[in-house]
Amino acid sequence: MTDFAARALSTFLHELGGIAIFNIRIARTYFGTAGNGPEIFRQTAIICTRSITTVLFAGVFVGAILVVQFNLMLKQYDAQMYLGGLNTSALVREVGPLIISFLLAGKIGAFTAAELGTMRVTDQIDAMECLGANPVQRIVLPRFIAIILASVILLGLGLVISIAGSTIVATVFCGINPLRFAGSFPRFVGVWTVACGMIKALVYGVIVAGVSCYKGYTASGGARGVGRAVTLAAVYTNLYIVIADFITSNILEFLTEVWRIALAGALAWLAAHGWIAGGGL
């Protein structure tokens, strides 16, 4: 049993180390070579168009599910006026980034791992090196950056559609006035909330991109090897995302707190020195 745990831990750390080293290589390539702008743009467009329908559908339904659930609870406490804000806050902060990144992991992560893995096992990557090109720069980097960009773009689109969907569901199924529903947004959702959601999407995007590129790029052993790379990429991505969610949530919570205290402190200092009228806090 301990043997098993030790092996599992060692595999986990080994993978993590491999991914970290590979990502450092990608970063060094990024800063060391001329940008590959058109290719990055092309890949981002491909990913967005490939995933947009899935994201929009998932967005609407996730929003709808949350509204129905929150409504059930809030009704008991006669607090339905908070439904819109609570629902949107949950979507922006947590559910949106998580769902989008799971979808991207399943769709684009798997696709990238399979594509790079096939290029590896059919010697295309070796051939590229032999023709004097750097495969990390030519094929990995554009995909890597495109996945990160796409996850933020898709999060934005997904959130808009899912908030719209929630409003409709709240109006039609829960009998709430749409203006009242939207009216509670500002109380729960501010610029910082949206920034937190975007930061999370960025982090998960890095995870999806880093893990799938790494697993694909290092695949070996023919079609079976590619299959294994794809499966492992999906498993590791989802695992790392939930772990990262816990960590980033806590860090962002902490930063929010720091931000509040700093703001309050600054205002108090300004008031004490007579720069602004005090007592407003």
């Binding site: 070796d126 051939a127 590229m128 032999c130 750097n134």
Partner: peptide, 23 residues
């Protein structure tokens, strides 16, 4: 190392057993 190898690789042409065309 990898970067230093690049100019040497440009001197060499390699034809792979399984064609390795960019599909």
């Amino acid at each position: 190392n990898r970067e230093e190898l690049m100019p040497v690789r440009r001197l060499c042409g390699m034809i792979f057993q399984q064609t390795a065309l960019f599909d």
